[in-house]
């Protein structure tokens, strides 16, 4: 599809400039005020056309910005899926060599070594075996990828999904943006503390709404607490930070959902996102 937007913006700018020149020339050329007045209706029509084009340009520019944001979200979503696929591919690649090693140990009748070997690889493949399936490919990819990242950082990652997630009305990249941002924040916060590090994700379905609760250890700074959804507000004093929750809030509100957070006595913070389910199809149990 051709990008007409840039031509509309360009044409608006050029019409405005040309119109100014034409009006200027007309003023110079006109000998009487009456003659000048007679041209006014035409100029007014031109100004009206330019104004309409200007408004159209603004609208197109906004839509362009929105499309760019969507593209960024899709990219981030794709990256999560790609990470998960890479993890699965890597493990699948190793299967063959492990099977060959097991076969050799059986042939050699090295029972003890075989047991050790199997114990070792079963521990290694814990992640694949414990693959959480949530009924939504995007959520499955994000949560499993983030789980692996969190566990590598020594964070205990719990997921409790009561029902399969069926959110057909929401764009996959926007759902990815919500969950990714919240989990990334949780990982960052949990990993910054010394003692107990854990993240707990609970997904439930209550009165036609999907409720996502992301809880993690670390008590948030109370001063930031009230403004946490405002752009540029972050508990980390670094430039360019504090836009994740702002984006999350915007996306959640776009789908008539809500987001809130609370701190608990056990030194943790819970972010609760409520997203309405349009079709109400949720019956199946999550795996």
């Amino acid at each position: 599809m051709e990008n007409k937007n840039k031509y509309i913006i360009l044409t608006t700018m050029l019409i405005q400039s040309t119109l100014l020149i034409v009006i200027n020339c007309t003023i110079i050329d006109t000998s009487t005020l009456e003659a000048l007045k007679s041209s006014m209706p035409i100029f007014n029509i031109m100004i009206l056309i330019t104004t309409v084009l200007m408004l159209l340009s603004l609208k197109k520019a906004n839509s362009f910005i929105k499309k760019e944001t969507e593209l960024e979200l899709v990219k981030s979503n794709m990256k999560n899926t790609e990470d998960l696929l890479n993890l699965l591919r890597t493990q699948r690649h190793d299967y063959l060599s492990h099977i060959q090693a097991i076969e050799s140990l059986i042939i050699l009748k090295e029972q003890e070594e075989l047991e050790e070997y199997i114990k070792g690889i079963s521990k290694e493949y814990r992640i694949t075996n414990e693959m959480i399936r949530l009924g939504n490919s995007v959520l499955t990819a994000i949560i499993n990828t983030k789980k692996e990242i969190a566990e590598k950082k020594g964070i205990v990652f719990h997921v409790r999904c009561k029902n399969k997630v069926s959110l057909h009305g929401i764009n996959s990249w926007e759902l990815s943006s919500i969950i990714s941002n919240l989990i990334e924040n949780a990982i960052e916060e949990a990993s910054s503390i010394e003692n107990e590090k854990w993240i707990k994700i609970t997904i439930s379905y209550v009165y036609n709404n999907f409720v996502f609760e992301i809880e993690n250890t670390r008590k948030i700074n109370n001063e930031i607490g009230d403004n946490i959804f405002k752009p540029g507000v972050s508990s980390k004093n670094a430039a360019g930070r504090g836009y994740g929750l702002f984006i999350v809030k915007n996306v959640v509100e776009k789908y008539n959902g809500s987001i809130e957070f609370k701190t608990t006595e056990k030194n943790s913070i819970i972010f609760k996102v409520i997203l309405p389910s349009e079709d109400g199809a949720y019956g199946e149990k999550a795996i």
């Binding site: 051709e2 007409k4 031509y7 509309i8 360009l10 044409t11 050029l14 019409i15 400039s17 040309t18 020149i21 034409v22 200027n24 020339c25 110079i28």
Partner: peptide
């Protein structure tokens, strides 16, 4: 040419011509 593209060279041409005319005047 497509109409939304054709207007661009026309307006550029007229704009530059108009500027030159203004300058000479």
């Amino acid at each position: 040419m497509k109409s939304y593209k054709a207007i661009v060279p026309v307006l550029i041409g007229f704009f530059i011509d108009g500027i030159i005319q203004q300058l000479i005047i």
